[in-house]
Amino acid sequence: MTRQAISLKDISYSDKGVAILKNISGSFPEGYITTLVGPSGAGKTTLFRLCNGLRSPNSGQIYINDKTINEYNPVELRRKVGIALQSAAMINGTILQNLSLPFDLQGKQFSKEFALELLQDVGLTSDFLHRDVKDLSGGQRQKLSIARTLVNRPDILLLDEITSSLDRVSQQDIEELIVKINKKYKTTIIWITHNLEQARTLGNYTWVMMNGQLVEAGPPSLLDDPIDEKVRLFVKGHEQ
């Protein structure tokens, strides 16, 4: 039986009394690429923030490799469960300062070779290293954000619409990179995407979330013939 990288038991989360996640139970298999789809506002990003420990659920339990999330020290948890958010937030400074941030926080030396390797992996050239992040395009920021999340070599990688501002070619490069990381390091990947084609072809497993609930979970082929009527409409809407 496959082990679960993350299991959620009856997770609910609300903000200022508004329910954002409602009784979510499900899991993300270890070593898989799970794609997570659903209309915007479904609660996908919020779910990621819970798994990375930036927020705690109001009720329910999250297990990371069979240990409850609260058994981990938050710092240890966040290095283990890496997150790259769609907003691709940056600290003020250069590309290098952002890239080395995860190591700087641990007081570890960040080598130039590692920096260049990461930049190459995400398709940025070495002359970027000393540029100001303010000068980056949306797509370049996303690439840098992915590279930065990879610095800690997390066991579990949460990717939130990381290819949404990328052109077709860059998107394929990033897809290949993520698949390579999944193979090479056995990293569990959970990937939020609006692109159903991406969800079908890259994933071994798929979650569909709607209105704060997990509506369907299973092999990506479930998107070809959804059981739930709402999911059927959502998939159809995306194909037009």
Partner: peptide, 20 residues
């Protein structure tokens, strides 16, 4: 808030996250 949570999300401590 974004920068502070970014540093936290990468495994920084509150002190590191709020330092700037």
């Amino acid at each position: 808030v974004e920068q502070t949570e970014l540093i936290l999300s990468l495994g920084g401590t509150p002190k590191q996250a709020i330092h700037t």
